[in-house]
């Protein structure tokens, strides 16, 4: 219960932090995907119920606090979350390569879905150059953010009292 509460608080705090972070014009205005990284972190390490809780909470916060329709995060986070959760026993979740690959994947996939939804709904006209910059930026930012988030949350959770038989761990 404490860990689940901590998970939700961490996701809430990350939403606040993500809003505060600057959107660098050099990266096409894309912000570091903290919420996406957290959703992925919990999908790789927790049981199915916690995975859904983390993924849906992060997606609702990301889309709910953003302008426009619900959609980009609500579609992208569960898809990547389910995939990561299914193969979590076959990958080393704390390995740098795993985190770089998954970080890049969730960054690119979230941006790709956002481009599709914004273009299809007419909220943002499709511009090939800008779309490419954003996809590339999301790839780099995802790769940079997931290892940092994993390291921070691992340290945070290690500071809590250990509990046996929690989830798949």
């Amino acid at each position: 219960m404490t860990r689940r509460l901590l998970m939700l608080l961490t996701i809430g705090a990350s939403a606040l932090l993500q809003q505060l972070l600057p959107a660098w014009p050099l990266f096409g205005g894309v912000k570091p995907p903290l919420l996406a990284a957290l959703a992925l972190y919990y999908a790789l390490r927790r049981d199915s119920r916690d995975m859904w809780l983390a993924v849906v909470t992060a997606a609702l916060l990301q889309d709910g606090l953003d302008l426009g329709v619900f959609g980009p995060a609500l579609l992208a986070f569960p898809m990547i979350g389910i995939l990561a959760h299914r193969i979590r026993n076959e990958v080393f979740a704390d390995g740098l390569v795993t985190q770089l690959v998954f970080g890049a994947a969730i960054g690119v996939f979230t941006t790709f879905i956002a481009i599709l939804i914004h273009s299809a709904s007419g909220q943002r006209p499709f511009h090939f150059g800008m779309a490419s910059v954003r996809l590339l930026s999301s790839l780099w930012l995802g790769m940079a953010v997931l290892p940092l988030v994993s390291l921070s949350i691992n340290k945070l959770e290690a500071s809590l009292p250990q509990r046996r038989g929690y989830g798949w761990q």
Binding site: Q19, A23, K31, L65, L67
Partner: peptide
Amino acid sequence: VSRNISGWWSTVR
């Protein structure tokens, strides 16, 4: 109280 969360929009809350 805050700025845009995704960077897709130029908004403030």
